[in-house]
């Protein structure tokens, strides 16, 4: 069972493997820097874990939990 970005804890790092999205939604996340191969770190979670702030390519970007669940990652220990 592969992990998604939403499964990670604050401070944890992971590498993006795939985006389970198509069309404009996929493009939108890639424009924000979430491309396969990119390293991401969880910097902050709001109450109830939504939204979640990530450090990606030198910039903090917040995603809705529902979006983060579609980004498949491999945790980096």
């Amino acid at each position: 069972m592969p992990a998604s970005l939403a499964d990670l804890d604050t401070g944890q790092k992971a590498r993006i493997l795939d985006l389970r999205l198509q069309g404009l939604e996929r493009r939108r996340l890639m424009d924000l820097g979430f491309t396969p191969g990119t390293e991401v770190e969880v910097v902050m979670k709001a109450a109830f874990g939504d939204p979640i702030a990530y450090m990606v390519r030198n910039t903090k970007i917040a995603l809705r939990k529902q979006q983060a669940e579609q980004i498949i990652v491999e945790p980096i220990s």
Binding site: L24, R27, R28, D31, L32
Partner: peptide
């Protein structure tokens, strides 16, 4: 112009 990461108009 406003700062943006893309011009997709979302």
């Amino acid at each position: 112009l406003p700062g943006t990461y893309s011009l997709l108009s979302t």
